[in-house]
Design a protein around this nucleic acid. Structure first.
Lengths: 344, 344
DNA sequence: GTATCGCCTGACAACGATGTCATATGTCCG
DNA sequence: CGGACATATGACATCGTTGTCAGGCGATAC
């Protein structure tokens, strides 16, 4: 039985109640008029519309969603390691574009590759009742998500597969890409190939190492891990790693770097070197063509798009066993891998 | 296999009511037990907790937010042109990191530089009752947002200033950065300097052109716009623009490219050219140091952080007139700008 | 005249959580 | 012993919207 709002303090946003009062109709009629539901007299509709405009009314999406149920949410969450990494931002871009075609919106959050933070963020997003989740996970196990899926929230894993949970995934053919890189260097006459890798716990990293090792061992180069340095998670660490490898005796004649940050670090570390090793990097670089860097390339936007498609299928009732989409990663030869090893 | 949910029953998620029933307490007590509010017997709390775990209960953030009021939302929206552009993704990254310190989360959405889409997205985010909005706007006017602000939702504009609306903004010193670039080229002896610019309606673009023109005119080079090409919004267009400029007679001896996409296109277009012009680009490039590209550099992460700070201040009750933070943009000289014009 | 139908409107409940208030035990102190 | 106080619990209203149902009214059909 409050009379007036406190004078001078308009603060609160107007609700349908205010609109209804001002236009002299019931709340329900106001709702009908504004939502375009049928059976409202034209004259009434206009009165309501005017009142709404006058008050600056805007529907409260929170209330609407509560009333209509979770299935009407338009939010999809994306968890990724670091938005500033072009790989993730391109993935996000492809994902968002495809989702928008279905009138869904993307929430992104960065985990900084921190499993604890990742779990916390997943929980927050689930509490927000997102419609679905796309996860580039850094975690060792995802069993705790099983309960969520039983409640109907679909997950799609991207870049890294789910562990201990059967769920859709969009993955790169990391092993094959790395295999091609190594095979190409071997064919070019290289025998001592340095490898600089990311955090060894990441499955993508391990797969790339596996593919590399496969090619090496097939060529009889069983000591391939002599020049292997792992856990170079940022560019600075990669710069240091290159320095260390190149100062060995004998130095490697070629380098394989397992992601874009590391390749960038390697290029930086090799600047001005009198006889730089041949180089192949995993992931395309923004200026890879200008620099002439041979890379294992793939299409992050497409990964995002595929993830969106898998998600949409689930939202539309797909109950099949988990799908797994593998996106190719292929060698793109440029100049950096083409100088042969120095005669020895 | 775990027992599936009852067939045909899509199994809505359990609410507090179910938890309360299972543990034999009232809904309110269940709420208290789970939210950590005081005055719940230890034994009761444990019974409730067990019931919640057993049912896979997760609080409904939508309902909570409706009950508690909009001021408890933890969402902040970011609208930007294209997440795949490293400038925006780095800005988003800085923003998100700072917001997280205050337990806020970021929703991002891309506008593709499309004003209609931008407006639609802003509306959607406002309906979601975000706590605040950070906007890198592509629009010509923002007056329609005035009503929102009166209802207490703070806006921060980044990269591009608000038009027809007094609001906080974090901007780059575009004019000064461009002025420095031009002055440096002029000091190096260049007289015919080509400029390739973005969409001419974007204020950032116009400011950069203004700064460039200032330096040129101060040096008495009043025909500076003879080599000006605008509206090269993507890399491919920039490649074409370079081709056109370099085929003129006489060709420009230097180039100024007004953003990272254009610089990339210019580098691509100049590849293999016998006597490439000197080059300065606006925005740092991922491999700018390795390529030796002189750039006007600045810190997108810092812009994001500053935007977050302005937003936090407003959320904490700051009622001062709009703040405007200007982030410096300064010349970083590398090799690409240092070859003098050919003797002519 | 009354039954029927299409159009239009409103009262009410509900979504799920929580703030407010009331009540029911104790316990401690004067 | 009576009052003050801390603890523990529950009934109920509420946030803003929309689905359900129940009318009212005029026009048409029988």
């Amino acid at each position: 039985m409050t009379s007036d709002p406190p004078p001078g303090k308009p603060s609160g946003r107007p609700s349908l109640v205010q609109v209804a009062q001002l236009s002299g109709v019931s709340v329900k009629t106001a709702s009908r008029a504004l939502s375009g539901e049928g059976y409202v007299a034209d004259e009434t509709r206009m009165r309501v519309q005017n009142a709404a405009d006058q008050l600056g009314y805007r529907i409260n999406g929170i209330a609407r969603e509560l009333r209509r149920g979770a299935k009407t949410s338009t939010l999809v969450g994306l968890l990724s390691g670091d938005l500033a990494n072009p790989f993730y931002s391109r993935l996000a871009s492809g994902l968002e574009r495809e989702l928008r075609r279905h009138h869904l919106q993307l929430i992104t959050a960065s985990t900084d590759e921190d499993p604890a933070l990742e779990r916390e963020l997943i929980n927050t997003l689930l509490e927000r009742r997102v419609r679905g989740l796309v996860v580039a996970s850094t975690m060792a196990a995802h069993g705790f998500l099983a309960a969520e899926r039983r409640h109907g929230i679909p997950f799609v894993f991207v870049d890294r597969p789910p562990v201990g949970l059967a769920a859709d995934a969009v993955l790169l053919d990391n092993r094959e890409g790395a295999r091609q890189a190594a095979a190409h260097l071997i064919a070019g006459g290289h025998r001592r190939i340095g490898v600089i890798g990311d955090l060894s716990r990441l499955s993508t990293h391990r797969d790339r190492i596996t593919g590399f090792a496969e090619a090496m061992e097939q060529a009889g180069l069983n000591d391939w891990d002599e020049y292997l340095l792992e856990d170079a998670h940022d560019t600075a660490a990669a710069v240091r790693a290159v320095g260390e490898l190149l100062s060995r005796e004998p130095p490697p004649t070629a380098l394989f770097t397992t992601n874009n940050r590391i390749t960038t670090g390697a290029l930086r570390g090799m600047r001005g070197h009198p006889s730089p090793p041949a180089l192949i990097g995993f992931d395309e670089l923004e200026l890879g063509d200008v620099l002439g860097v041979t890379v294992v390339t793939h299409d992050p936007e497409e990964m995002g798009q595929q993830a969106a498609r898998l998600l949409m299928a689930r939202l539309n009732g797909d109950r099949e066993p988990p799908h797994r989409v593998v996106v190719p990663a292929t060698l793109l030869v440029r100049a950096s891998s083409e100088h042969p090893p120095p005669p020895n």
